[in-house]
Design a protein around this nucleic acid. Structure first.
Length: 730
DNA sequence: CGCGTCGTGGTTTTT
DNA sequence: CCACGACGCG
């Protein structure tokens, strides 16, 4: 494809960004404005017009999927394979860097990547060793804290506890956890980035090499980068002007896991010569949908500012349906999908988006009842499934006997008579002798201190692994995986489990064999071939499995209704979109209502949801919603009210539902405001003789049974029985 | 050691 | 309401 062809299909702004002079650039790309196109064409431009070698280009994305897509699209444009070009996620690129420079990074050559699950297990063990009460200091929270520190680029030495018990305790855990990782040659996700950054900083020649190698660096979804990722880009860029970042501050929805929307401002500050390009023409949605999106996001402060426009025409109004309850909501959505399909359209053109996964169940049931095909995205990913992780643990221990995480996982799976007690003894012995559990197990079998029964069981396990190892010596990867699945007893174990669940697990294991069959390390090119030579195919496969969670399986080609959270919908588009559960407390979520900064993020999430729609947008909410076993009476979401009414067409609930005729949905929002059968209403200021002043944020029940949730100025949020609480209106 | 019962708590998710 | 983890019994 030649240059004019590249540029022809672009609008003016897109073209300026693609052909921007070498230098730093910020591309603010609104939803549906052709962002990916600009990125890929930019690379093509750099290669074809600026004469850059792909070898000198670094392109960073947020997900593996995005990376693969980008590579494919660039290859298509250039009609040549992109050998040598670095395209990948922050994590995969850091991983490759560390494999190549493990010595400089002070890592074991055969270091292993541990995923979130391994990490949690490890922290649990650390807590145990430190004799810290898991109840008081939950492992999950500790993991979260440690990762947050690493994401900020902080080592234990950088952190002062200042007498704060919370920090003090977690700091201790962090230290012990680091030691454990060090001992076991384990590297978690955050560590990949942090370690790479440190290695570059501490190694002038290495840094100079990479700074010189990369003549251009491109970053996608820049608004989702965290502090360490930004630092990483900063150090690789050095004093050069070669960093082009693409993002949209209005679509930043991962602040809760460390993403720093401020990185955009920081970029402008750190690269004052940078040029900003705004992509505001939207090629996806109707004018009405964009109008709704623009009006909604206007309610946020501190935006960089951007107004999307389209040439696609006004289109149909946004439809708002006030459902009686969540079942009615689901039925309404299913009916609309059916109607759409009856017009000869495909199911896959419809997406149902929701705030939290718990909402998917009712929707799923309704689809099932109507026998419409659907596919739920998210949930458990392939490589995270228990049976897959177990099989991988067998493979891992074959490759590296000293992997304690793998040892613990499979030593008694399938059950072979090695209980918690025995495992604990092995663990303690290993710790005391400073050896791996595998070695400790060996020693224990040969010494006193265990029952004969336990010894037999343990040596049975050792023999199993050794035999398996010998038997698979000459096998290729796929045969090795099959052999492991069959001889380890996993297959029989899940066969015995039976039922739909066991069947699904067996199928997954079969799929793992297929994955091994089709695994090609050259699809994931390492920095250079010398690194590759040092790793066995099995090790590469295992690394791949840790970094690539695997697309939620299911047939992508099958024509089905798409269901997912709004978070996972980012980057996608559908002709018809349903946003379900637009209720205060659910969306915006209760947890976000209480903290001010998070409301803006919820609104951005809603903006992301709205801007997924190409032609038709449906908003639904339920007046009554059964959630966690109790009925909630939520008001319609503020987000709905932030959309200009003239863009919205309200739909009456359907006739089967018996409800008072006088209740139009507008009145409903008012009626639902008042705590039924009482003198109170939502939002009202109240006084409690013990807790002081506050206001009513939620309620459930009626009359004497009514309970209200009150957010007190001093003591936080509490649920109170109205009958007992003696609240006074203020 | 394995299985059953009780109790608790419950956004969003990638790597 | 339901999924998961902690306990206690056979």
């Amino acid at each position: 494809m030649d240059v004019t062809e590249i540029l022809e299909a672009l609008n003016r702004e897109q073209r300026s960004a693609v052909t921007a002079p070498k230098g730093s650039a910020l591309v603010l790309a609104g939803a549906g404005s052709g962002k990916t196109r600009v990125l890929t064409q930019r690379v093509a431009w750099l290669v074809q017009t600026e004469g850059l070698s792909p070898f000198g280009i670094l392109a960073v994305t947020f997900t593996n999927k995005a990376a693969a897509e980008m590579r494919a699209r660039i290859e298509e444009h250039l009609s040549m394979p992109l050998r040598g070009m670095w395209v990948g996620t922050f994590h995969s690129l850091a991983h490759r860097f560390l494999r190549a420079h493990w010595m400089d990074a002070k890592l074991a050559q055969n270091f292993q990547i541990i995923d979130a699950d391994d990490q949690l297990r490890l922290v649990k063990r650390v807590l145990n060793n430190l004799a810290i009460d898991d109840k008081k200091w939950p492992a999950k929270q500790a993991v979260w804290w440690i990762n947050a520190q690493k994401d900020e680029g902080l080592r234990p030495n950088h952190i002062q506890d200042e007498g704060d018990l919370f920090v003090q305790t977690h700091l201790g855990i962090y230290r012990a956890y680091e030691e454990a990782c060090e001992r076991g040659g384990m590297v978690d996700f955050a560590e990949l980035l942090l370690r790479t950054h440190e290695t570059l900083l501490n190694n002038q020649s290495l840094l100079a090499h990479y700074q010189d190698r990369f003549k251009a660096i491109l970053v996608d979804e820049f608004q989702d980068t965290n502090a360490i990722q930004y630092a990483w880009l900063r150090v690789l860029t050095g004093n050069d002007n070669k960093l082009m970042v693409v993002g949209d501050d209005d679509q930043s929805i991962y602040g809760w896991r460390g993403a720093k929307i401020e990185n955009i401002q920081r970029f402008q500050h750190d690269y004052p010569q940078s040029v900003t390009y705004r992509l505001e023409q939207n090629y996806r949605s109707t004018g009405t949908i964009l109008g709704a999106a623009n009006a909604l996001i206007e309610h946020n402060d501190d935006r960089l500012g951007k107004a999307l426009w389209t040439e696609l025409g006004e289109g149909e109004p946004v439809t708002l349906y006030a459902a009686y309850n969540e079942i009615d909501e689901a039925r309404y959505i299913v009916d609309r999908v059916k109607q759409y399909a009856d017009e000869g359209r495909a199911f896959r053109e419809c997406a149902i988006l929701y705030r939290s996964n718990a909402q998917s169940r009712v929707l799923e049931e309704a689809l099932l009842r109507s026998q419409l095909p659907y596919r739920i995205y998210g949930g458990q990913r392939f490589f995270e499934r228990a049976e897959i992780r177990s099989a991988l643990a067998y493979l891992k221990i074959l490759s590296q006997r000293h992997s304690d995480a793998a040892f613990e996982r499979v030593v008694n799976l399938p059950p072979r008579g090695i209980g918690d007690k025995s495992v604990q003894i092995i663990r303690e012995t290993a710790r005391a002798d400073n050896v791996s559990m595998w070695q400790a197990a060996h020693h224990l079998v040969a010494s006193a201190g265990l029952t004969v029964r336990a010894k037999t069981a343990i040596s049975g396990f050792i023999d199993l692994i050794d035999t398996l190892d010998a038997a698979t010596e000459d096998m290729d990867l796929a045969h090795l995986v099959r052999e492991v699945v069959e001889s380890s007893g996993l297959k029989q174990f899940y066969e015995k489990e039976g039922g739909e669940k066991g069947q699904a697990r067996l199928e997954n294991l079969e799929e793992l064999v297929t994955a091994a069959q089709t695994f090609d390390p050259d699809d994931v090119p390492l920095f250079d071939e010398t690194v590759q030579a040092d790793m066995t195919l099995l090790d590469e496969f295992l690394s791949h499995a840790s970094l690539e969670a695997g697309e939620g399986q299911g047939d992508i080609n099958q024509d089905s209704v798409q269901m997912m959270t709004m978070h996972s919908a980012k980057g996608l588009e559908f002709p018809v979109v349903f946003l379900a559960g637009l209720e205060e407390g659910l969306f915006p979520h209760q947890m976000s209502v209480e903290e001010p900064g998070r409301m803006a993020e919820e609104r951005r999430l809603c903006y992301v949801g709205v801007t997924r729609a190409m032609q038709k947008l449906f908003l639904t909410y339920a007046e009554t919603r059964r959630l966690n076993g109790t009925d909630r009476y939520n008001r319609v979401s503020r987000f709905v009210q932030e959309i200009p009414p003239e863009l919205i067409q309200e739909v009456r609930p359907q006739t089967q539902i018996v409800r008072p005729a006088y209740q139009t949905s507008h009145q409903v929002s008012r009626v639902a405001k008042e705590v039924s059968g009482t003198q109170f209403e939502l939002g009202q200021k109240v006084m409690h003789n013990k807790f002081g002043e506050g206001w009513i944020t939620n309620y459930e029940g009626h009359g004497q049974q009514a309970r209200v949730q009150v957010k007190f100025d001093d003591v936080g949020t509490k649920w109170l029985m109205l009958a007992f609480a003696k609240l006074e209106a203020v």
